[in-house]
């Protein structure tokens, strides 16, 4: 069980073995939307790391210290999504003020972090796996770093694809999916590397 494993294994499992993008298929909208440039992808990746780690920790506290004691488990979905939405707003304000260039690069994708399933999923998974607070923290760092790593790698490949001769019907999105499929195949090789 994940909650009996040590912290290093939890991190690696979330980071590459069960990669959030390629194995669990979460956060794909922004993945395909923004990964045309390495710079924007890196920015998005870092934003996701920040939001995921904070939002997961807050959600964990909300769940175990607010919802469970009052038997309000059925409000889990509503409570988590509100936590994340308000957190994204907060981050948006900061980036807009401090890093206007980055804000321009994100375009419409920053508000879309709210509907980035990777973040809500990490919060849910942490609860589903019955992780402790510290484990949950490491887990969320692992998941979001995995997101960041893959989106940057993928953007690198896509930048090259732009200049390659591809059958016309596959231009754009289709070839991106096939590339992602091949990357997913490579990541599948990590499965079974760590026994969890």
């Amino acid at each position: 069980m994940l909650n009996e494993a040590n912290l290093g294994l939890i991190f690696l499992s979330a980071f590459i073995v069960n990669n959030i993008l390629l194995i669990r298929f979460l956060g794909l909208c922004s993945f395909f939307g923004i990964s045309t440039q390495i710079k924007a992808s890196l920015g998005m990746g870092i934003a996701v790391i920040f939001v995921t780690v904070m939002a997961c920790s807050i959600s964990w506290i909300v769940y175990y210290h607010l919802l469970l004691p009052f038997h309000l488990e059925y409000l889990r979905t509503v409570a988590f999504i509100l936590t994340i939405a308000s957190f994204v707003q907060f981050e948006e304000i900061i980036i807009k003020k401090k890093l206007p260039a980055l804000y321009k690069a994100f375009g419409i994708y920053l508000p879309l972090i709210t509907t980035n399933c990777a973040i809500l999923a990490s919060a849910f998974l942490g609860i589903d796996y019955k992780l402790s607070f510290i484990q949950n923290l490491i887990f969320s760092i692992g998941i979001s770093s995995g997101y960041c790593l893959v989106i940057v790698l993928f953007a690198g490949i896509r930048e090259e694809i732009e200049f390659s001769p591809i059958p016309e019907n596959f231009r754009g999105v289709p070839i991106a999916f096939i590339t992602a499929g091949l990357m997913s195949l490579a990541f599948l090789g990590f499965k079974g590397l760590f026994k969890l």
Binding site: L22, N169, P174, F177, I178, L185
Partner: peptide, 22 residues
Amino acid sequence: IMPPGAFLVIGFLIAIKQGMTR
């Protein structure tokens, strides 16, 4: 039915739709 297959199938389906639209 493993994860990569999902990406491949949808990639090909979109390619087909793009071809038809074109």
